[in-house]
Structure formats: structure tokens, C-alpha cells
Design a protein around this nucleic acid. Structure first.
Length: 441
RNA sequence: GUGACCGUAGUUCAGCUGGUAGAACGCCUCGUUGUGGUCGAGGAGGUCGCGGGUUCGAGCCCCGUCGGUCACCCCA
């Protein structure tokens, strides 16, 4: 059995699924460009020290090596495939700082790679659609609202279930833990993040065992994590817990500003949620996670945050804020379950039938006239029986077959069976048939 | 990296206490001799993931291996 087997974690789509994915990506592009984001493409590889600069993500990185590399040859810096688009972007900004105009906004839609064991909704190669705004020295807080609203726009009108963005602020959580007297606030954050998965009791136990929290401190952490609100009412709720800390205060003010502005601009999309802790460890303030409503257990389909220190050459710092939509995570499950599909598996709108093989030149001419007016057309592969040529179209979902016969030039809608004489230079398919479209189950 | 479960036509699956391979759908042909879909008849397609072992005999039992799914870790 030499037939290749699929490789787990490297999803590949069928043509009709890819049509859906392409249209979704086009939609995202349009939304990003409407907000003035310029596109950027960065190389697939980064030096390992760049990738590992922040945090212990090392085991997630695929390392690249030349087959002929000599063991003793250390002249080539070790290279790894990028695991997100933010780290390469930060590197790119530093590298091109002199040629870019700040604040700089860009979007990037590319594959990323993570060397982890795949499971449902988690892949080793997947696509991200990333937007970021980076400034020089200082990054105004209003950009934290803007990127959230761009994502709200981008995800609107997509044929996907309703989504909601949960927002928190790392200063708020870590300031709270700090004010409470917990030393390892990073680890506390990580534990709180497991709340939905393992439950409150297990989290409390972990806090007590791992970061030496007292039962009372653990209780307070859980109380904080339970707070969420679609408006700024969370501020008073948190203050009522009686913990004071300058960092907490800063976080409260920042989060309140983001939630307030977002609630006005996109009512119902953003909710402050104190148990949001995740994201890569370079985030320093606001953090975002977007979930499919009612499907929170599937994980976030988009996440991001503010990072003040990621892009820094020691002399200049370029703080940024951005969000990354997990295109594969969002679409692959919907495609594989059949919840999303395309109306056909080819772009072709018209198949030109062939009465006999000598007619191919004439048929090609007709096809070219249709293409000249933007109608995707292909000529039948052979002058087989007309029944077979119609079946060829039917199997691919091509809606129209063009015949040249005694009646003249006729077009048949193979769904209805209607066949009418047309003028090739004037006929147009219904707008919804010109290109494949997305259908939801 | 750790653990659990699973690998049989293109696909989804069945296959009894071990006795030499099945269904449905899909595909091809014909009925319908150049206008499909329905219906009917016929047909092609499998070294049962791979390697070894036990046995007179293995899809089935044992060992190994590769692959897949899920969970942990981490994250989109």
C-alpha cells in the first residue's frame, strides 16, 4: 500500500472547501484594508534566538536544518519556522524602522507552524490573519480599542456562528495577585486560565500548592476570575474585593477605557472577563480572546493583546497592539463537519459542450467571448455524448452548459433543465451564479 | 514528550468461539445508439496499515512498529 496517508496536524482542503476558505480570507482582507492596514509578507523562518527571545516556547518551534549541514558547521545561524506572525513582525519593524512611517499598521495572512501534538482544532500548520499597530516610543491607548473594532468588523458578515470578544488586562490581574501578596503572579495567571477546564476547586488547590497561596488568597483569586461585565460595572465589583495595588489600579483604568469605548462603538461584542489570562507571554496590558458563543470549550478563534517591549533594539522601543484570527481553527472544523460548503467545486460558470472534436476551435472562441465579459468558462474535455458532458458539469456543480445546434447557440441551466437560445455576447448568468458562493448547512 | 483508544474496498462501516472478504453509498458499462439527474441490469475495485510470532489455518490471538483520534502540556 503505497498510497500516501494524510499527515496529522497539516490539514489540506478539497477544492470546494478551499473555495470557502479563499472567500473568507478575501473578506478579511477587504475589512482590514477598509481600515487602512497595509499588507505585509514575512519570510517563513526566523533565527532561533529571535523566536526563543520571549518565553519558553522552544518546544513548539520547528527547527530548520540543511540536509548537507556539517555537524561542526556553526556558520549558519539556527533557523526555525515562525509560530505566530507577531514576533516576525516585531523583528521586521526593527529591521526596517528607518523606512516605515509610524504609527504603522499592517495585516498579514500567512501559515504558521507549531511543533505540538495535534488534536481537535489544533494543527501543526495553520493560517493566521493578523493585524497590528505599532508606534515609536509611546502607543496611544485608543489603538487598543481600534484593533478590537477592526476584528469586530472583519468577523461580521462571515457565515460563522456568533462570536464575542473577552477582554482583560494583565496589569489588572497581576496587580491584584500582587496586592494580595502572591509572589509568582505569572504562574497564578496560568492557573486561573485553567478555570473553565478543571473547575474552581482544582484551581484553588493548584494555587495553594503551586504559588503558596493561602485558602483566603485562592478564594479571592477565584472571586476576581468570576467577574465579567459588558460595561464598566466590573470596576466597582473588583474594588469591593478590597485589594489595593498601583498596578491593579492602572489595569482597572485601562480596561475600563477599552470596554467603555468598545461598548459604544460595537454594542454587545466586547465583554470584560477577568479570567482571560492567556496569550503569549509578551503581552503587557490589554489581552483579547474571541470565542464562538456557546462553543467556548473549543478555544479562542482569535486572540491578541498589547505588547510594550517586544520590538526593542535597546535604544528604541516600538510598543504595539494586535490581534490574530485563527483562520484554520475557525474554518477547518466547520468545513469538515459540512456546516460550511461552496455552491460548486470549480469557479466555472459555463461549460461549452462539444458536438464533435473538430468544433473545439469554435467552442474555444465562444468560451473566450464569455471570459472577455468576466464569465468563468471552460470547454468540454471531449465530444462525448451530450449526456456525459452534462454529467461532467453536474458533478462539478457547473450551473450552465452551452450548446451550438440547429437552433443556434443555446444555454441550458442544468438545475432546472431550461434551455434557451442566447446571444453569447449579451447573455449573463444570474449574479448569484457567476461565482461559487458559500452555503451554510 | 506522557497516556488512552482506534487502523478492513474511493467513503462510511459490518465481519460470530480463529476456517481464506461483505453491505451501503460512490465509480464504470448497458437499457436510453448525441441532452444528465430517477429506475433497472451488469461490472470494476481489498497482499484486512506494516513486520514478526502462535496455529493445520489469523481480518480476528500475542509482540513490535508506523499512522490516526482524543486527553495532558501549550496555544489560534
Amino acid at each position: 500500500m503505497s498510497r500516501p496517508q494524510p499527515l496529522s496536524g497539516f490539514p489540506e482542503l478539497l477544492p470546494r472547501q478551499r473555495i470557502v476558505e479563499l472567500q473568507v480570507v478575501d473578506h478579511l482582507r477587504r475589512a482590514f484594508e477598509l481600515h487602512g492596514f497595509a499588507n505585509l509578507q514575512t519570510r517563513a523562518v526566523e533565527p532561533m534566538d529571535q523566536l526563543l527571545r520571549k518565553g519558553e516556547t522552544s518546544k513548539e518551534v520547528y527547527v530548520l536544518r540543511r540536509l548537507q549541514a556539517d555537524d561542526r558547521d556553526t556558520s549558519d545561524a539556527e533557523l526555525g519556522l515562525h509560530f505566530d506572525l507577531t514576533v516576525p513582525f516585531a523583528r521586521y519593524v526593527l529591521e526596517n524602522a528607518g523606512k516605515l512611517n509610524f504609527p504603522f499598521r499592517r495585516y498579514q495572512i500567512q501559515p504558521v507552524w507549531r511543533g505540538e501534538r495535534p488534536q481537535s482544532g489544533r494543527y501543526r500548520e495553520f493560517w493566521q490573519a493578523d493585524i497590528d499597530i505599532i508606534d515609536q516610543g509611546e502607543l496611544p491607548a485608543h489603538y487598543e480599542v481600534e484593533v478590537a473594532l477592526v476584528v469586530a468588523d472583519a468577523l461580521r458578515d462571515l457565515p460563522i456562528p456568533a462570536v464575542r470578544m473577552h477582554v482583560n488586562n494583565r496589569k489588572l490581574s497581576q496587580g491584584f495577585y500582587q496586592g494580595l501578596g502572591i509572589a509568582d503572579t505569572e504562574e497564578a495567571l496560568r492557573i486561573i486560565d485553567k478555570l473553565d477546564k478543571i473547575g474552581a476547586d482544582a484551581v484553588a488547590k493548584l494555587l495553594i500548592d503551586t504559588v503558596d497561596a493561602t485558602p483566603e488568597q485562592a478564594e479571592a483569586c477565584l472571586k476576581l476570575a468570576s467577574i465579567s461585565a459588558a460595561d464598566t460595572s466590573f470596576v466597582d465589583e473588583i474594588r469591593a474585593l478590597g485589594v489595593t495595588d498601583p498596578l491593579l489600579e492602572e489595569g482597572l483604568n485601562e480596561l475600563a477605557a477599552v470596554v467603555d469605548a468598545a461598548a459604544k462603538a460595537a454594542p454587545g461584542f466586547v465583554v470584560a472577563d477577568m479570567k482571560i489570562a492567556r496569550g503569549l507571554d509578551y503581552y503587557t496590558g490589554t489581552v483579547y480572546e474571541v470565542f464562538i458563543e456557546g462553543q467556548e470549550h473549543l478555544g479562542s478563534i482569535c486572540s491578541g493583546g498589547r505588547y510594550d517591549e517586544l520590538a526593542s533594539d535597546g535604544k528604541h522601543t516600538y510598543p504595539g497592539v494586535g490581534l490574530s484570527i485563527g483562520v484554520s481553527r475557525l474554518l477547518v472544523p466547520l468545513l469538515q463537519s459540512g456546516a460550511l460548503d461552496a455552491t460548486r467545486e470549480v469557479p466555472t460558470c459555463v461549460l461549452v459542450a462539444l458536438a464533435n472534436d473538430d468544433d473545439r476551435a469554435a467552442a474555444t472562441g465562444l468560451a473566450q467571448r464569455l471570459r472577455g465579459r468576466g464569465i468563468p468558462t471552460q470547454v468540454s474535455p471531449s465530444a462525448a455524448k451530450f449526456g456525459k458532458q452534462i454529467k461532467f458539469a453536474d458533478k462539478r456543480g457547473i450551473p450552465f452548459v452551452l450548446f451550438v445546434n440547429d437552433e443556434g447557440t443555446q444555454i441550458k441551466d442544468i438545475r432546472s433543465g431550461d434551455q434557451v437560445t442566447i446571444d453569447v455576447d449579451a447573455w449573463n448568468p444570474p449574479a448569484e451564479d457567476l461565482h461559487p458562493t458559500i452555503v451554510t448547512a
